[in-house]
Measured scan of single mutants.
Amino acid sequence: GQVHVGDTTYHFPNPEEARKFAEKAAKENNLQVTQHGNTFKVE
């Protein structure tokens, strides 16, 4: 799974890890998570 936060892309071998990371980043920054397959975008 990939997580895009601003201009930075994080790669995770496990989509579940990617999702947890995205949700945590979104919560900390008052942002939203959008999911496209195994790619998550925090914005």
Results as ranks from 00 to 15, higher is better:
Glu43Gln: 11
Ala25Asp: 03
Asn14Gly: 07
Lys24Pro: 01
Lys24Arg: 11
Lys41Gln: 10
Lys41Asn: 12
Gln2Pro: 01
Ala25Thr: 15
Lys41Ser: 11
Thr9Val: 15
Thr39Pro: 02
Val33Cys: 07
Val33Ser: 03
Phe12Ser: 01
Glu28Gly: 06
His11Asp: 09
Glu23Arg: 02
Gln2Gly: 04
Asn38Asp: 09
Phe40Cys: 04
Glu43Met: 10
His36Cys: 14
Val5Gly: 01
Glu28Ser: 07
Gly6Gln: 05
His4Ile: 15
Gly37Trp: 02
Asn14Glu: 05
Val5Asn: 03
Thr8Lys: 15
Ala26Met: 03
Val3His: 00
Pro13Gly: 10
Gln32Phe: 13
Thr39Ala: 11
His36Lys: 10
Thr9Leu: 12
Glu23Phe: 11
Lys41Gly: 04
Glu23Cys: 08
His36Thr: 12
Glu16Thr: 06
Asp7Val: 07
Ala22Pro: 00
Glu28Phe: 08
Asn38Lys: 04
Gln2Val: 15
Phe40Lys: 00
Val5Phe: 15
Asn38Leu: 05
Ala18His: 00
Val33Ile: 11
Asn29Cys: 13
Gly1Leu: 05
His36Glu: 12
Gly37Asp: 06
Gly37Arg: 03
Asn14Cys: 07
Thr9Tyr: 09
Lys20His: 10
Thr9Ser: 06
Glu43Pro: 04
Phe40Asn: 03
Ala22Asn: 00
Lys27Asp: 06
Glu43Ser: 12
Tyr10Asn: 03
Pro15Val: 15
Asn29Gly: 13
Val5Asp: 04
Gly6Cys: 08
Thr39Met: 12
Thr9Phe: 09
Asn14Val: 04
Arg19Trp: 07
Glu43His: 14
Lys20Thr: 10
Ala22Ile: 02
Ala18Asn: 00
Ala26Arg: 01
Lys20Met: 11
Gly6Leu: 09
Ala26Val: 02
Val42His: 03
Gln32Tyr: 12
Tyr10Trp: 08
Gln2Thr: 15
Asn14Ile: 03
Phe12Met: 00
Gly37Tyr: 05
Val33Pro: 01
Tyr10Arg: 02
Gln35Ala: 08
Gly6Pro: 01
His11Glu: 07
Gly1Asp: 04
Gln2Lys: 13
Glu17Pro: 00
Lys24Glu: 12
Thr39Ile: 15
Gly6Val: 04
Ala26Trp: 02
Ala25Val: 15
Gln35Asp: 04
Thr8Leu: 14
Asn14Leu: 04
Gly1Phe: 15
Thr39Ser: 13
Leu31Thr: 09
Asn14Pro: 01
Lys41Pro: 03
Leu31Asp: 05
Gln32Pro: 06
His11Pro: 04
Thr8Ile: 14
His11Met: 10
Thr34Asp: 04
Gly6Arg: 06
Ala18Phe: 00
Phe40His: 04
Ala22His: 01
Gly1Ala: 15
Glu17Thr: 06
Val3Leu: 01
Asp7Ala: 11
Leu31Ile: 04
Gly1Lys: 03
Gln32Ala: 11
Thr8Glu: 12
Asn14Met: 04
Phe40Leu: 05
Phe21Val: 01
Asn29Ala: 13
Thr9Arg: 07
Glu43Tyr: 11
Lys24His: 12
Gly37Ala: 05
Val33Leu: 08
Thr8His: 14
Phe12Asn: 00
Phe21Lys: 00
His11Gly: 05
Gln32Val: 14
Asn30Phe: 08
Pro13Trp: 08
Tyr10Leu: 06
Val3Gln: 00
Pro13Val: 10
Asn30Met: 08
Thr39Phe: 10
Gly37Gln: 06
Thr9Met: 11
Gly37Cys: 11
Val42Leu: 13
Val5Lys: 04
Val3Ala: 04
Glu43Ala: 12
His4Thr: 14
Phe40Ala: 03
Arg19His: 06
Gly1Arg: 02
Gly37Thr: 02
His4Trp: 13
Glu43Leu: 10
Lys24Ser: 10
Gln35Thr: 07
Thr9Glu: 07
His36Asn: 13
Arg19Phe: 09
Asp7Asn: 14
Gln35Leu: 06
Ala22Trp: 01
Val42Arg: 00
Thr39Val: 14
Glu17Leu: 09
Val42Glu: 03
Asn30Leu: 06
Ala18Lys: 00
Lys20Ala: 14
Ala25Asn: 07
Glu23Ser: 05
Lys41Tyr: 15
Glu16Phe: 06
Gly1Pro: 11
Pro15Ser: 11
Val3Pro: 00
Gly37Ile: 04
Phe12Pro: 00
Phe12Gln: 01
Thr9Trp: 14
Pro13Asn: 13
Asn38Arg: 02
His36Asp: 13
Gln2Asp: 07
Glu16Asp: 11
Glu23Met: 10
Gly6Ile: 05
Glu43Phe: 11
Tyr10Met: 05
Asn14Lys: 04
Gly6Asn: 10
Thr34Ile: 13
Ala18Met: 00
Thr34Ser: 10
Arg19Gln: 09
His11Thr: 10
Lys27Thr: 09
Glu16Leu: 05
Phe40Tyr: 10
Gln35His: 07
Gly37Lys: 05
His11Ile: 11
Val3Asn: 00
Val3Glu: 01
His11Cys: 12
Val5Tyr: 13
Asn29Leu: 15
Val3Asp: 00
Lys20Gly: 05
Arg19Lys: 12
Lys41Ala: 08
Asn30Glu: 06
Asn14Trp: 04
Ala18Leu: 00
Val33Asn: 01
His36Met: 13
Phe21Gly: 01
Asn29Ile: 06
Lys27Gln: 12
Gly6Ser: 05
Lys27Ile: 11
His4Ser: 09
Glu17Ile: 06
Phe21Arg: 00
Lys27His: 11
Asn30Gln: 09
Val3Ile: 02
Asn29Pro: 05
Asn30Trp: 05
Gln32Glu: 08
Ala25Ile: 15
Glu16Asn: 06
Glu23Asp: 10
Lys20Pro: 03
His11Phe: 15
Phe21Glu: 03
Phe21Pro: 00
Gln32Gly: 08
Thr8Ser: 11
His36Arg: 06
Glu28His: 08
Glu43Ile: 11
Thr8Arg: 15
Asn29Arg: 11
Gln2Glu: 12
Pro13Thr: 12
Asn14Gln: 04
Glu43Trp: 13
Glu16His: 07
Glu16Ser: 06
Glu17Gly: 04
Gly37Glu: 08
Lys41Asp: 07
Gln2Trp: 15
Thr9Gly: 02
